[in-house]
Write a protein that binds this DNA or RNA. Structure first.
Length: 505
RNA sequence: GGCCCGUUCGUCUAGGGGUUAGGACGCGUCCCUUUCACGGACGAAACACGGGUUCGAUUCCCGUACGGGCUACCA
């Protein structure tokens, strides 16, 4: 019988959760949903030196905003395997227990080397032109550990409270083969794997030990994580094997990385010219916050949609999917092997698609707070009509302001390019005719304005519409002109037109 | 450097032993439009290279190049 699907997202609270992390969480979530399984949030806070205040809460907030809700875990009501924070799980002695099991079976050992001694070893090896200096089957013979020291000396050291770590005893030359759901069979020789530290000198487990213990204890069926973990997977295979748990081992899936659009490498929060974090992140160690997708105007649905299609596709030409649709469609077979460069331009397009799905009234409501912050108020009807006219041109709600602010406050300067190109000595007389004619319009509506203008053209020849637009709005582009004039209202249009004409000859 | 993973338009990708190599973003042209967009139509744009295997390879295999990851008592 197949194991119940149970997957986990297991970040360490060492900073804000960036978009790559969110995507890993997303794929875990989608896989769990697809198979009616469980999605767990576990906090891997075993490195006390890198702990960052607020990071854990940020992770919870970010997942919540995205709609990627764990059904077990920190911040989501815990569950049958509580606690879900490794620093708390350590209290039960569970990691030490598994480490002891490995020591007793001869698969792990105590190492007493100080960090200075380790540095020295690396320097010595580098000087000797060893290509990959590491603590391994060969080099451990020259170090201070329970394999080289006399038994009574080891005992004395342990009893005297000397600092030590527990290391995995990796065999010297052994093929380690494992199957990755996404990549297929991967083979690595154990000579490439170092004697990984399992238990640190502060008593905390390392990631390598802790995640295995927890995955076993929490009955995790699939370990889905980023590609950066692929090189350490062989060590993990060994740990499962030495623990006698190879059969219980979760299936492995290493996701391709999200790469920087320009330049190389994975996305870096410092250099990126686009948001990297789902929500704004203020690192307590830094002065400036990093602006998030949310604060940049992205809908969470759009953000999730963008992430889902980075490294995965449904196999047809469709691109717009809700979280539920993604969950129904998701499959590791359709996850790519190669890294995906993030395209900020396409991200904007996705948001635009979602924005267009909103009603004019919804958009008006979303826009209202921004308008109020400028000290401007308009009726709901006015704003809904404004949004109706503008919505085809914007990617984000805040662009209603950036692209349509002239509706609310007349611009002082008229578009110079258009004026230079189109305004001539006959223009003033012509647009004064327009002004006069508009004054007579009593039913100020799109169609009436359109017809009035047509009649003027019939009587006097071509009257440039863009020029009229600039005279009234100041800008060269915008929504349908007569719709816009109808929205502005007769008084406003005549006032603006009069003011512009007054300044020109 | 070593090890591991990867490589289809600029980017995200579909496809897969015989295809006009498909879609999307972006870009360009045209249509609609006296303005601005949307929309529609069209276009430029890709199988990294070299060897095999094969009647035939972009597709399978091997090399090379390139890209990425890892190389901590960090995850």
């Amino acid at each position: 019988m197949e194991k119940r699907v149970r997957v986990r997202f297991a970040p360490s609270p060492t900073g804000g959760l960036h978009m790559g992390g969110v995507r890993t969480a997303l794929f875990n979530y989608l896989f769990a949903k697809k198979h009616g399984g469980d999605f767990i949030l576990r906090i891997e806070d075993t490195d006390q030196t890198r702990f960052v205040a607020g990071a854990e809460q940020y992770i919870v907030d970010a997942l919540t905003w995205c709609g990627i809700k764990p059904n077990e875990g920190v911040g989501f009501g815990d569950g049958p395997h509580a606690p879900y924070r490794q620093s708390e799980r350590k209290e039960s002695g569970i990691y030490a227990k598994y480490a002891q099991q490995l020591i007793d079976a001869g698969y792990a050992y105590y190492a007493f080397d100080s960090s200075e001694e380790l540095d020295e070893m690396r320097k010595r090896l580098e000087a000797a032109k060893v290509v990959a200096p590491q603590y391994n089957a060969v080099t451990r013979q020259n170090m201070r550990n329970s394999l080289t020291l006399p038994e009574d000396e080891v005992k004395r050291l342990l009893e005297s409270g000397a600092k030590y770590v527990v290391r995995l005893k990796v065999p010297r030359n052994e093929e380690i083969r494992f199957e990755d759901i996404i990549r297929g069979w991967v083979t690595v020789n154990s000579s490439q794997v170092d004697d990984k530290v399992l238990l640190k000198s502060d008593g905390m487990p390392t990631y390598h030990l802790a995640h295995i213990v927890d995955d076993i204890e929490m009955k995790i069926s699939h370990a889905v994580r980023g590609e950066e973990w692929l090189p350490s997977a062989p060590a993990h295979i060994l740990i499962y094997r030495y623990l006698g748990l190879e059969k219980e081992m979760p299936k492995l899936a290493h996701l391709p990385l999200i790469l920087n659009p320009d330049g190389n490498g994975k996305i870096s929060k410092r250099e990126a010219r686009f948001p990297v974090f789902p929500l704004s992140w203020q690192d307590p160690r830094e002065a400036m916050p990093y602006v998030g997708y949310k604060e940049s105007g992205y809908y969470p649905e759009a953000f999730v949609n963008i992430l889902a299609l980075l490294g995965w596709n449904p196999g047809n030409n469709e691109e717009l999917f809700s979280l539920d649709e993604l969950a129904a469609l998701f499959d590791f077979e359709r996850v790519n092997k190669s890294g995906a460069k993030f395209d900020p331009e396409k991200a904007k397009w996705f948001n635009q698609q979602y924005l267009r799905k909103h009603s004019d009234a919804d958009l008006a409501n979303a826009f209202k707070p921004l308008l109020h912050s400028k000290g401007i108020a308009r009726s709901d009807a006015f704003l809904a009509e404004f949004c109706r006219l503008m919505k085809e041109k914007v990617h984000f709600v805040h662009e209603f302001w950036e692209q349509g602010h002239y509706v609310f406050e007349a611009k002082e300067v008229l578009d110079e390019k258009v004026m230079a190109k189109k305004w001539n000595d006959k223009s003033k007389a012509l647009f004064t005719l327009v002004q006069d004619s508009f004054i007579t319009v009593s039913d100020w509506q799109t169609q009436v304005l359109h017809d009035t203008f047509e009649e003027l053209v019939k009587a006097h020849g071509k009257i440039d519409m863009q020029l009229l637009r600039v005279l009234i709005t100041g800008v060269a582009g915008g929504p349908q002109l007569f719709d816009l004039l109808a929205l502005l209202g007769k008084d406003e249009v005549l006032a603006r037109l009069g003011k512009s004409l007054g300044k020109l000859n």
